[in-house]
Design a protein around this nucleic acid. Structure first.
Lengths: 197, 197
DNA sequence: CAGCGAAATTATCTTTTGTTAACTACTTCT
DNA sequence: AGAAGTAGTTAACAAAAGATAATTTCGCTG
């Protein structure tokens, strides 16, 4: 039994009072996926509607801009959900690429399969709600940081809230996620050092 | 019968096959709210968990920054949902202020009441899913624009996709939503005019 | 319709970012 | 171990944004 299943069973119990023994219809439909560092999980143009819970590792979602450069939309790590949002929300081929930054283990389910399971087992519905709310919450928080903070403040924020993450991820992805260039992030770091932190 | 109810009944039928005649348990719990221009719907610190569908008008969500300035998180208009996300997602007093920019009509429901209704009428559940997905989709789109586009490109985007909106809303709120100052937006507009559009 | 206040523009100056390129420091791979 | 590629820093210059203040425009209200 994977550790993620235990975690999610506990979550399902907390959210909806569903006993672990009664979760078989859901978890028999999930698969464990192991990705090597830099392995792509979802390619540009993929149409599978994938939803996954990260057991171990870090995932990055990025898009190829018109000029050919990459832009990182977000990073996700242990105990978080990732979902190919273009395919799930809009039924469009994914414009985003989802790639593992470290050796990563996911517990995945196809969203269409999840919907089928939910039809016959509505008692799992709170779980869908939970991950939708969590993703929404995270997105709103990022939006908020873009309208209220300067790039330097956003970086300081990330350092205090996700220090572990910043140390596990190349700076260029951090910069992109903050909406700036790697050169600019390097200057921000220098300025912070110069001003005695 | 308000026009929003008809719209939402249609949506509920499309999503879940629920007939308008069977929607009374839901819509008897909703209230119509009329707001004057510049009237506040949700104040900073409010704890009510409000969810509303905009029948007519424009709503703005903003926060007071540490330095006292306002930052606009988003604007929402006809046929969109707004929700006091701090209270609904985190059960925290709202840090955001939701205010009408025009005379506005909402159809509101308390989120706790909605949850009660959903317990006895799970057939409405697809509606909750729908608005959560829509809000998530919109947030992700805004996040995407911050990591892939320059301020000028974000403004051009807004002009082509939401020209009507830009013309109904003071520039200073547009600027704030784009993450820049009103002065900077004014310069962007000038540059665009100079370069023959 | 005149006058008041808010919004938008313009100007000036400072700070920050983007761009490009050179250089350094690390990985990684065979 | 050596070579090759990648990441991060630094530099130099151009472009854009922030801050502040003055000025113009616009919309509302009495």
């Amino acid at each position: 039994m994977s550790a993620s299943i235990t975690t999610l069973q506990q979550l399902l119990f907390d959210l909806a009072g569903v006993l672990p023994a009664d979760t078989a219809p859901l978890f028999t439909m999930t698969r464990q996926v192991k990705l090597a560092a830099n392995e792509t999980y979802i390619h540009e143009g993929d149409t599978e509607r994938r939803l996954a819970f990260i057991e171990q590792g870090i995932m990055r979602a990025h898009i190829i801009k018109d000029n050919g450069d990459e832009a990182t939309l977000f990073l996700r790590w242990e105990k978080q959900f990732i979902a190919s949002h273009d395919t799930i929300i809009h039924r469009q081929p994914s414009r985003f690429i989802y790639r593992a930054l470290e050796p990563t283990t996911l517990l995945e389910i196809d969203y269409d399969v999840l919907e089928e399971v939910l039809k016959t087992h509505p008692e799992y519905e709170p779980l869908r709600n939970f991950f939708l709310m969590r993703m929404l919450s995270e997105s709103l928080k990022i939006m908020e940081s873009f309208v209220t903070l300067s790039p330097e403040e956003r970086y300081r924020n990330l350092l205090t809230e996700r220090f572990d993450l910043v140390n596990r991820v190349p700076d260029k992805y951090i910069a992109s996620m903050l909406g700036i260039t790697p050169v600019s992030l390097s200057r921000i770091r220098k300025r912070m050092l110069d001003k005695g932190k």
